[in-house]
Amino acid sequence: MKKYPNPKEQPSSTNAGKQETDSKSGSFFEVVFKIVRKIPRGRVTSYGAIAEASGIRLTARMVGWAMNGAGRVKPAVPAHRVVNSKGILSGKNFFATPTLMQELLEQEGIIIKEDKIANFKDVFWDPGAKTRKDSKKVL
């Protein structure tokens, strides 16, 4: 039976949630954080795209859970660049202020209207794309 991490445990950068996938990839938190750190400035991706790119059968919900703990790890994880599959800033309430996620994205040139990325298809970055480094394909 597969064990899932306890959501009440605090993740850390060295042993995030103690959920090991195998000795090479580390915990699912570490895999998610590694992918999120690759998102280029001025681009965003979705929880589902990260889950698919992880290669460890994550769900989008598990990626969201990892993003909730991203503020406590080093090196920093740009969690503000992760949105839902429609471009909505669904994680905004998990930042220090409800407007911080939007402010960080706008500082990178991303246009936000009513808690949604206006040009989502144009700024979407696909972490699973192998053919083009800077893919805009929406999953």
Rank of each mutant, 00 (worst) to 15 (best):
A49M: 07
A70I: 15
E108R: 08
D122V: 10
D22S: 12
A129K: 09
S12G: 12
S90V: 15
N15P: 00
E52L: 15
G42H: 02
N15A: 10
Y4M: 12
Q102T: 06
A49F: 05
Y47W: 07
Q10M: 13
R57K: 06
G64S: 07
L58H: 05
K8D: 14
A49G: 02
T131Q: 08
T131E: 15
A70Y: 05
Q107W: 01
A118L: 15
D134N: 15
Q10R: 15
M1R: 13
S13R: 06
I56A: 03
A70W: 08
G109C: 07
W65A: 09
S85F: 06
K74G: 03
A53Y: 03
L58M: 03
K121N: 07
D115H: 11
V138S: 06
I117G: 03
G91K: 07
F94T: 13
A66S: 09
V31K: 05
S54I: 08
A53W: 00
G48D: 10
R72H: 13
A129T: 02
P40A: 06
H80S: 03
F95Y: 10
P127E: 02
H80N: 03
P98I: 12
S135P: 04
D115F: 07
P127S: 04
K3G: 06
V73T: 05
N93A: 11
L58P: 00
F94P: 02
G64L: 11
E114F: 12
V138P: 07
Q10H: 12
W65M: 13
N93L: 12
S13M: 11
R41A: 03
E9I: 14
K136N: 12
D134W: 09
F29P: 01
V63R: 07
T99H: 11
N15Y: 05
G26N: 05
K24C: 09
A70D: 02
F95Q: 04
R72C: 15
R37L: 03
E30I: 05
S25D: 02
D115C: 10
P40K: 06
E9R: 13
Y47G: 04
R43M: 09
F29L: 04
G87N: 07
G128S: 14
V73E: 00
N84Q: 06
L105D: 02
P78R: 00
K121A: 15
V138G: 09
L89G: 03
G87F: 05
R57V: 04
P75V: 11
K34H: 04
L89C: 05
P11G: 00
N93T: 13
M62Y: 03
V63A: 08
E52N: 09
K8P: 01
S23N: 08
V83G: 06
Q10F: 13
T45E: 01
G69C: 09
